[in-house]
Computed example of a mutant assay.
Amino acid sequence: MRAFRMHDWLTEPVLTEVDVPEPGPGQVLVRIGGAGVCHSDLHVFREFEPGRMPWRLPFTLGHENAGWVESVGAGVTGLDPGMPVAVYGPWGCGACDRCLRGVETYCERPRDAPVPLGGAGLGLDGGMADYLLVPHARHVVPLPDGLDPVTAAPLTDAGLTPYHAVRRSWSKLTATATAVIIGVGGLGHLAVQVVKATTAARVVAVDTRPEALELARRLGADVTLRPGDGVAEVVRDETRGRGADVVVDCVGNDETLALAASVARVLGDLTIVGLGGGRLPVSFFAMPFELSVQTTYWGSRPELVEVLALASRGLLHTEVTRFSLDDVAQAYRRLEEGTLTGRAVVTP
């Protein structure tokens, strides 16, 4: 089968031929229908130096995956060949308190996991291939009716990550609240929808690209702004001088973090989702009082079920640009150039 694999650090992955894996006891072989192209992969093969992560090469990229059950190993029940499924990407030990709650992103015994701090496409073979071997059936989630693998694949990260970030701030997203989403890309265009679908709050979307702002308006954003449009002043005007109750930064560089702090409200939440590498200076008067600042990583398996349910009801729409597996390198180039709207999905 074909697979887009990293063979060495700080080098471009290549499409190569490998054997189709056979599922062992408790394992599931998934025929890939869609694999999302994520900006974090660029960090993996452009910036990760030898020794930075406890991962062994080579491995296949692709941590946003959905498809159909091809075959199962001994002991697997409830997953029949041909069943459409999504794959929960982070793979923990399965036995610690966090894993038992379905929060394998925060596994407390990573040395007992299949690979420390990783999962599909992150230290282990992912879904940029014709087939993906999932090491445990608990990571395979049947798709609800009306949801196909191509549109479901990005929901496993680009949908799940902002859903987790927004969900933890639900108590602050009341009918009088305002949420600011910074960056309307693969994650941000879904973050806008998550707020609108699960809360009564108003949404202000911020992006540098006119096409991204147009997408945000189509998906329900109440106000759309470019960073140079006096964002902080507009947000203050829109909120009667109070500021945003919740800010989700899907970029995470120095400029967007400074913007996020400038629009946030006293007692608000600022959640950093993007991996832009920025820093947020903290001092007594540097930000609103009791502003809670947090980073999040992915989301839980139960939350993925909730995200898929929202999408199957038509409450989440994934803006998808499709690429064949033969064109996967082009998809990453387009992502790096910033010429994609929504999420790129590789469809073997």
Rank of each mutant, 00 (worst) to 15 (best):
V195R: 03
E233D: 15
G126T: 11
R56M: 12
C38N: 05
P142W: 13
K172F: 04
V72S: 07
R242N: 02
D326H: 11
D41F: 04
G73W: 05
G102P: 08
V263M: 04
T296C: 10
D254W: 00
L257V: 06
G241Y: 04
A191P: 10
E319S: 12
P302S: 05
E336C: 00
G314R: 02
G146P: 05
Y106P: 01
R343M: 09
R167Q: 14
T198Q: 02
M287S: 14
G243V: 10
D130R: 12
Q294W: 11
R5V: 12
R242A: 14
L133Q: 05
M1E: 04
L308E: 05
L190H: 00
F48Q: 12
L270F: 04
G121H: 03
P142V: 14
M6V: 14
V30D: 01
P302E: 09
E70V: 07
F323Q: 00
P162V: 07
D245R: 01
R56C: 07
M83Q: 15
V263C: 01
T295Q: 09
P281Q: 00
S169I: 05
D80R: 14
G24R: 05
A261G: 07
H7W: 11
R5K: 11
G299N: 08
T151I: 11
T151R: 14
G102W: 08
T178R: 04
P288K: 05
V141C: 09
A120G: 14
E303V: 11
P13M: 06
L155W: 08
